[in-house]
Amino acid sequence: MNILVLVKHVPDATADRHFESDGTVDRVGVDGLLSELDEYAVEQALQLTEKREGEEHTVTALTVGPEKAVDAVRKALQMGVDQGVHVSDEAIAGSDAVATSLVLAKAVEKLNADRAVDIVVCGLASTDGSMGVVPAMLAERLGWPQVTLASVVETQGDQVRIKRDGDTATEVIGATLPLVLSVTDQSGEARYPSFKGIMAAKKKPLETLTLADLGVEAGEVGLGAAWTEVVDTTARPPRSAGEIVKDENGSGATALAEFLAAKKFI
């Protein structure tokens, strides 16, 4: 199988994330990393090939992002992915989801033309924008089936079945390759890169592509071309410290009951 896994480089959620004055995310001044939820996508991509022994497989990690975004691909290579592609172009900065999905779709189409792609594996959502829309947009653009939010993935021949916990039901979804798949953090712990994996990653092929390579005009993407505009960003004032009491012989429950009564919850 020929699998593409989409990995996003995001600012560390435990660091002090913030916006630039133009409403874009500061992706330079804050440490970045492979979006944690995309580790699950890498893991499932690797497992899909491991479950189909005896076949020939290639797993390629693809990212769209600034210079540092290549670190997301590197991490995927260390985890065991075979090769990496980094789409990087000044003109992409500030793209909204629609434009990002365009660049990703063009990259998938280019790789697909070189060698037919079977599955594009995505995370459930990025940990910065966290829209959870790119997989559906990509499927729409490619005209491929989307099987999203999988907690379990199985393939047999050219058939894929996933299990997912929907909002109102647990479902089994079926589709035929090629397709776009997204997986949740319920799909199984992601592996850590081994020392051997880290050393091997240094020798794996890593290609950098620009918009011109994909046949995308600079004017189609980026902040200026975005179909959405950030008007204002404000840091939320920290919640003012509330009252904290220590429970002693039942005093905690009484104090809490009084608080809830004062607020008219009881």
Partner: peptide
């Protein structure tokens, strides 16, 4: 929090 109780939930919650 607006209001917090430092205590064991197994005693605080049933009493509440």
């Amino acid at each position: 929090v607006d209001f917090g109780v430092v205590g064991d939930l197994h005693t605080v919650l049933p009493a509440l």
